[in-house]
Amino acid sequence: MKRIKLLDKEFALSIPASDIKKALWEMASKINAELHDKNPLMICILNGSFMFSADLMKLIDFPCEISFVKLSSYEGMGSTGKVKQLIGLNEKIEGRTVVLLEDIVDTGVTIEKLIGQLNAQNPRDVKVATLLFKPDACKRNVELDYVGLEIPNDFIVGYGLDYDGYGRNLPDIYTVIDY
């Protein structure tokens, strides 16, 4: 599909599934090379990262754990600037390498807050793997260790990302064209 409609908005195809798969392979190769002997705990940030995390984990070629946290900072098409933690981490991370699996880093507020919370628990290292990064939207100085694709500061849906809950199931990523 070249165009889709979700609720009251029109979207055009911007990143096909084949480009996403290529980015995942490149990220997994780097993670496999750098973390194979670190016993990392992968942390999927729900809801948006569920597809990215599942597909990336299938490409990791060493034993590791995965856990989940649920954070919220978006309403409609924009960030509220406030991060709400809806489900927290149960695992002990002291002395461990932790890899945050994030679907998209735009303002950097969510990832910065989560890194701060995790660092208070004395992990050995906190790394960030994000499928998508919007450098023009980033307002925080956050280190991103594994970046799949850099994209413009547009509103997007698909592959886990949503517009008011819709569009997460799409295998491709679409950009809003109708504001």
Rank of each mutant, 00 (worst) to 15 (best):
G158M: 01
I173Q: 04
G78V: 08
A12L: 00
H36I: 03
K84M: 14
A137F: 02
L161N: 00
G167E: 01
F52T: 05
K70G: 12
D145F: 04
E75Q: 15
I115N: 09
E102T: 06
A33C: 03
S49K: 04
Y146P: 07
N141K: 15
N122C: 12
C64H: 03
L170N: 06
S67V: 04
M42Y: 09
S29W: 02
P40K: 05
I173W: 08
N39E: 10
N119C: 08
I104C: 06
V109G: 08
D178K: 12
Q121P: 05
D162N: 10
T110Y: 10
S53G: 11
K5W: 00
I4M: 04
P171H: 01
P40D: 05
I31A: 07
G76T: 05
D8F: 03
G95L: 06
S73H: 08
K58M: 11
D19Y: 12
H36D: 06
S72K: 05
A28D: 04
K127D: 12
D178A: 09
F50N: 06
L100I: 08
V83K: 07
G116R: 06
T110F: 13
L170F: 08
E112H: 13
D172Q: 03
Y174L: 02
G81N: 08
K134D: 14
L132A: 14
K134T: 15
F52M: 13
S67D: 15
K82A: 14
Q85C: 14
K92S: 12
S79I: 10
V105E: 11
G88C: 04
L41N: 03
V128G: 15
K9M: 01
L149A: 12
L132Y: 07
Y163C: 05
V105C: 10
L59V: 02
L7D: 04
L41Q: 01
S73T: 13
T110A: 14
D172L: 06
S18T: 10
S79G: 13
L114Y: 10
K22N: 10
P171Q: 02
F52R: 09
K127N: 09
V176T: 02
